[in-house]
Design a protein around this nucleic acid. Sequence first.
DNA 1: AATATATGTTACTAATATCGTAATATTAAA
DNA 2: TTTAATATTACGATATTAGTAACATATATT
Lengths: 198, 198
Amino acid sequence: MASQNENINKNRRGLLEAARTLFWKHGIRRVTIQEICSEASVSKMTFYRQFTNKNEIAAQVLRDILEKGMGDYHRIMQQEITFAEKMQQVIMLKNESTNHISDEFVKDIYQQNQTELRAMIESYQHEISTEVRNDFAQAQQNGFIRQDVEIDFIMYMMDRLTRMILDEKLLALCGDSQQAIMEVTRFFFYGILTQQPT
Amino acid sequence: MASQNENINKNRRGLLEAARTLFWKHGIRRVTIQEICSEASVSKMTFYRQFTNKNEIAAQVLRDILEKGMGDYHRIMQQEITFAEKMQQVIMLKNESTNHISDEFVKDIYQQNQTELRAMIESYQHEISTEVRNDFAQAQQNGFIRQDVEIDFIMYMMDRLTRMILDEKLLALCGDSQQAIMEVTRFFFYGILTQQPT
DNA sequence: AATATATGTTACTAATATCGTAATATTAAA
DNA sequence: TTTAATATTACGATATTAGTAACATATATT
């Protein structure tokens, strides 16, 4: 049934999935290749037939994560819904585990000689942030955002607010994460005043 | 001000605290002595003046955790409150991070040659479980628990229920962890029937 | 069935990381 | 000032991991 090519991809995907899980928990440094193989139920040789070393699979894992994040963002922004609805979806997106990169993972990237991975993450951040900035600027021109607020300020608040959603204290305050997202989004758009301007 | 003895204890406690944090996240195997020292802002030599090796500090960390668990349990049971209130507090206790031991930590103990640590954890479990069993038996004799239920069944359910409190799905169902504890405790005592026996 | 290809197993060396100790320099308390 | 504790550095011993090779086995293709 399954062709050999399909099996190769299956193994490759299995390795990537295993690596992602392990890197997520423990960072890159602590995880051994043997461990990735065991987690993926695959021999070490199969690993080395797919990747040259740990850095390469780490790079691929990172690439997959970043591209998924990009794709998700684009998919949201291309919908024909209001700007507010788009923003709510973006904030919800960060709630998924794959969309904030794990601390341990980033730590390892920004320590040692991981210049390649660092470059990758920074180029992604640059790309996505210019894009988001443009989207905000356009929304401001179209009158969806008040004129007297700086785009950079919005960018900053957006980042802070999306992080807050993962904060357990906020979760405790709001009840569940769904509620937290609602609250944060509402705050993002309307502040705390009862009377709303345009 | 601070005497040298106090400083020694401070360093020792700092090392134990750092080790606990790191072991908690990553298990014993992945954590290096140097890392513990860095986390505790202490030199490697200071470590070796306090502990002979990683296993020893791991043993001490485990001992502290287990003794804290025992202490907490005793403190709860010695209070002059109803059996139901005691049980609720015991269930709440498991909600604290220190009272269920981390998976990674236990994994490492039950893999390799950690016979000593394994023995420690098992002896603790034996001690606490006979004690809990006695408390339940006495509560049953005093009429707080229905006569037609096996103590072992209660023990099992107790364990399951306290674990459930950490389950995110239940948390989502109940709103927050406080609510979850209430629900679980209520279920533990009354089941789901509206009409309550004695 | 025969063949080719992918994978598993085992064993091994090289590279790297970690351990544990000693000697010396600094710091802080008595 | 004297004493004890700690930091720093360097180092050899030990353990772990990386990466490769040779061969056996399994699976798909022809």
